[in-house]
Design a protein around this nucleic acid. Sequence first.
DNA 1: AGCTCCTATTTGAGTGCTCAACTGTTGCTG
DNA 2: CAGCAACAGTTGAGCACTCAAATAGGAGCT
Lengths: 164, 164
Amino acid sequence: MATMAAGGLTDEEQRTWRNFARAARLLFAQLDRDLSRDAGMVPGAFELLVILSEAPNRALRMNELAEATLSSPSRISHAIERLAELGWVERTTCPSDRRGWLAVLTDKGYEALAAAAPPHIEHIRTHLFEGLSDNDVAELGRICNTILSRLPASGAAGGGCAAE
Amino acid sequence: MATMAAGGLTDEEQRTWRNFARAARLLFAQLDRDLSRDAGMVPGAFELLVILSEAPNRALRMNELAEATLSSPSRISHAIERLAELGWVERTTCPSDRRGWLAVLTDKGYEALAAAAPPHIEHIRTHLFEGLSDNDVAELGRICNTILSRLPASGAAGGGCAAE
DNA sequence: AGCTCCTATTTGAGTGCTCAACTGTTGCTG
DNA sequence: CAGCAACAGTTGAGCACTCAAATAGGAGCT
């Protein structure tokens, strides 16, 4: 029944596209659920905390956060406000540029991250990697890197940014 | 800097995970933007229209829609209401089960889908497939299918459901 | 019939995201 | 050193999704 969604894709491409979309969405949904159940963490908060924890002085400017998470300044602004209400980050003015703000990970935020990380990583392993061979993992990484490199404003190759 | 997010993953796994997550999110975000720009279609609406268009009589029950799109009954209920307001679907009572409702794709909805599909597919090709070899496509499909098959409540293999 | 449990769906409150203004800074240019 | 475009970030409205509660019909048992 290769009707509407078929267009100019081969059968193989259609299958791959649907599998890729389903796998990605289901996987992210599962991980988000796990994270919110285990750590009471809203989807996306974890990523912000990780990135901050890896930054020098555990601090980053808002636009750097936006870039690192591939999201809009607006989203970062809202999200950091929520994290600040939880006491997980603090905002300090940027010394070198009075327009800017630094989001700083607090000790409390670091602890929340430290508590959330191990189960989360375990879930990534069980849901994503456990069924894949070493070769599959390498192939998947390579292919995704290729996809990334062709997407607008991606920052592909090796892991991008300072987030590694 | 393999700190918090490292845990029990190898370097290769970390790289693959980050590339996969970035590629998937960036790709979906791009396609959603394209779709909403070209067709004024909210993310997710397209998928519903496709599934309805492929169903017998262009009609499906709410729970079937939920299953096919891997989403909650609640989301379907809200989403179909929005599509109904646009005149793209209609709701009729289900003859065999008075609890149920059928969502039926209208001609207007079919036209909207027919207009939206070609550019969308073209975008899938350019963003996802154009940089991949035939072998990459096959590998990616196979790997995603493996991932799917190990995820709870997935319905993997060959394309799942009637959606092919 | 009547009871009870299960399934199908809707509803509404709450929350996070997007998009389009808006405020305040910086730094280039004449 | 004005003037002004570009930049950094916030704000608020609007919308889509989630979760829990509510409605309502079916199915099986006695």
